[in-house]
């Protein structure tokens, strides 16, 4: 196999297509395209039995975006704005802990980044507007806040800590889109290495003890800046070459 095999965590969702209404195992195609554009081969990993055996076949994994993580996982009561899918939480937390244990290269996107904190003993802010007093981290669904002429709602800079792996990847600053209402409070075993300069919300985390475990709070798969996916593909190909 020439391309590294990258698993994307997917989920079961009631979707509408035309007049049809069905329960589907699904994931937006932009994640698939981001993996394929950066030299990987994507497969979707659905919530499953308490089993992590599928990780043995993968070279890397992306924990994708989605709904909120159940605050019971860090012992907090549920905020009225928090909407959870406990089946997905259970499956992904188990996969993430096993993937960290195995040293599998991983990228966390939005919810996937928040999962990194929760899986390693950290916690989240359940509703950012309560904390920062504005809604500017949550762009309207279906919009592209990075498009020319878009309002700055749902778009902001990220400042990256010098000396971090993320700094080698992104440089000192970058501009990102923003589609979330929760954020990391305590990053657990991960290190925060990027912040929104306006409000100090954590935007990037990385694991100090793993070759590649990067989490970003924004959605690179909806942009043309696929550096995070390219870095995952590269780390996955490297890990595979070592294993072979």
């Amino acid at each position: 196999m020439r391309r590294p095999l990258i698993g994307l965590t997917a989920y079961a969702e009631q979707i509408h297509h035309g007049r049809n209404d069905l329960m589907a195992a699904m994931l937006p195609m932009n994640y698939v395209k981001a993996v394929h554009a950066t030299g990987g081969r994507a497969v979707l990993i659905t919530p499953d039995d308490p089993g992590t055996d599928v990780l043995e076949s993968l070279d890397g994994i992306v924990f994708c975006g989605g709904g909120d993580i159940d605050p019971a996982n860090w012992g907090a009561p549920r905020h009225p704005a928090t909407e959870v899918d406990t089946v997905r939480d259970t499956s992904e937390l188990m996969l993430m802990r096993a993937a960290l244990e195995a040293g599998l290269p991983m990228l966390g996107v939005c919810r996937g980044m928040q999962l990194m904190a929760v899986a390693t003993g950290g916690s989240l802010h359940q509703h950012l507007p309560d904390l920062v007093g504005h809604e500017r981290h949550r762009a309207a669904a279906g919009t592209d806040p990075l498009a020319a002429g878009a309002s700055d709602y749902g778009r902001h800079d990220v400042v990256v800590e010098e000396g971090s792996a993320a700094h080698r990847l992104f440089g000192r600053t970058l501009t990102v889109n923003s589609f979330h209402h929760q954020a990391i409070a305590d990053p657990g075993e991960f290190l925060p290495v990027g912040w929104c300069p306006d409000d100090q919300v954590i935007e990037i985390v990385e694991h100090p003890g793993r070759s590649f475990a990067l989490g970003v709070q924004w959605h690179p798969e909806r942009t043309s800046d696929l550096r995070a996916f390219a870095a995952l593909a590269e780390a996955s190909a490297r890990a595979r070459a070592v294993a072979a």
Binding site: I15, H16, L22, A25, M26, L27, M29, T46, D48, A141
Partner: peptide, 20 residues
């Protein structure tokens, strides 16, 4: 093109949950 939650007609890779 699938719709769910706040999303409308987003190109989506999917298979009916019955198969998985």
């Amino acid at each position: 093109p699938a719709s769910w939650g706040v999303w409308t007609d987003l190109p989506t890779a999917l298979v009916p949950h019955d198969y998985t």
